[in-house]
């Protein structure tokens, strides 16, 4: 890897870290200012909406199978159903995820 690439790698790594940490510093300062004034101000409204929509968008984007065959789409749909069904019963994270992967995997192995 030549020197230019190392510099690019450093800038991207530092930039990515700053994109993650600067908003925290900004928000922490805001929270401290409000605390000093004696008021508890929650994050701005648009942020509390954008957080869940980001997660939902990640969910939608991650639904596309690596090899989008008919069997893979059926496996995706049934895997999702299994995840929801177990989540409704357990309201936990691990078991529904595992069940979804299991159902998806069985269909892929059998018909994929």
């Amino acid at each position: 890897m030549n020197q230019d690439l190392w510099v690019a790698l450093f800038i991207i790594a530092a930039g990515t870290y700053l994109l993650r940490v600067i908003p925290l510093i900004w928000m922490q300062r805001k929270l401290i200012q409000h605390e000093k004034k004696g008021s508890v101000k929650p994050p701005p409204d648009w942020l509390t909406v954008l957080g869940p929509t980001m997660i939902s968008a990640m969910f939608g984007a991650s639904l596309v199978p690596a090899h989008p065959t008919f069997a893979a789409w059926i496996a995706t749909a049934l895997g999702m159903l299994a995840t929801v069904a177990v989540w409704v019963r357990t309201r936990s994270m691990g078991l529904p995820t595992l069940s979804g992967v299991f159902v998806f995997g069985v269909i892929i192995v059998l018909f994929g």
Binding site: I55, S56, M58, F59, S62, L63, P65, A66, H67, A75, T76, G79, M80, T83, V84, W87, M93, P96, T97, G100, V101, F104, G105, I108, V109, G112
Partner: peptide, 13 residues
């Protein structure tokens, strides 16, 4: 083929 399905399942939960 199979393990990456853990991510959409986790996001769904």
């Amino acid at each position: 083929d199979v393990l990456p399905f853990a991510l959409p399942a986790l996001f769904l939960v």
